[in-house]
Amino acid sequence: MNIFKQMFKSLYSPKDISLYRFHGIGKTILYVFLLTLLSVIPTVYYISAAVINGLDAAQTAVKEQFPKFTIENGKLEAQQVAPIIINHDDFAIIFDSTGKVNEDDLSNEDNAIAFLHNEIFFVAGGNIQSYPYSMFTFPITNSDLQKFLDTLDSVTGIILVIMAIFIYIFSVGMKFIEISIYALFGLLFKNMTGKNLQYRHLWRMAAYSVTLPTIFFTIMAALQTSVLNGFLINWFASLLVLFLAIKEVPKRKQN
Score class of each variant (00 low, 15 high):
residue 229 N to C: 06
residue 25 I to V: 11
residue 90 D to I: 01
residue 179 I to R: 06
residue 223 L to Y: 11
residue 149 L to P: 13
residue 74 G to K: 13
residue 71 I to M: 04
residue 28 T to K: 05
residue 34 L to R: 00
residue 86 I to P: 08
residue 86 I to G: 13
residue 208 Y to S: 13
residue 114 A to Y: 00
residue 252 R to F: 13
residue 36 T to M: 01
residue 253 K to P: 13
residue 70 T to S: 08
residue 231 F to W: 15
residue 117 H to R: 13
residue 47 I to W: 00
residue 130 S to R: 01
residue 135 M to W: 09
residue 235 W to R: 01
residue 68 K to H: 15
residue 230 G to P: 11
residue 165 I to D: 02
residue 171 S to M: 11
residue 218 T to C: 12
residue 137 T to W: 03
residue 26 G to A: 03
residue 97 S to F: 06
residue 137 T to M: 09
residue 165 I to F: 15
residue 183 A to Q: 06
residue 187 L to Q: 02
residue 120 I to R: 00
residue 228 L to Q: 14
residue 98 T to I: 00
residue 254 Q to N: 12
residue 3 I to M: 11
residue 227 V to M: 13
residue 14 P to F: 00
residue 193 T to C: 02
residue 198 Q to E: 14
residue 164 A to P: 02
residue 149 L to T: 04
residue 129 Q to H: 06
residue 154 S to G: 11
residue 221 A to V: 08
residue 174 M to E: 12
residue 95 F to W: 02
residue 255 N to M: 15
residue 204 R to C: 12
residue 20 Y to I: 08
residue 218 T to I: 05
residue 168 Y to K: 04
residue 112 A to Q: 00
residue 106 L to I: 08
residue 63 K to A: 13
residue 224 Q to I: 08
residue 26 G to C: 02
residue 236 F to P: 01
residue 221 A to F: 10
residue 95 F to D: 08
residue 251 K to I: 10
residue 191 N to Q: 03
residue 141 T to H: 15
residue 48 S to H: 12
residue 117 H to C: 11
residue 88 H to D: 15
residue 43 T to L: 15
residue 73 N to V: 09
residue 110 D to Y: 06
residue 77 E to W: 00
residue 235 W to L: 14
residue 78 A to G: 10
residue 37 L to W: 01
residue 254 Q to F: 02
residue 175 K to H: 12
residue 130 S to P: 13
residue 131 Y to W: 06
residue 236 F to S: 14
residue 66 F to A: 01
residue 103 E to K: 13
residue 69 F to K: 06
residue 113 I to N: 01
residue 246 I to D: 02
residue 17 I to S: 01
residue 99 G to H: 04
residue 115 F to T: 03
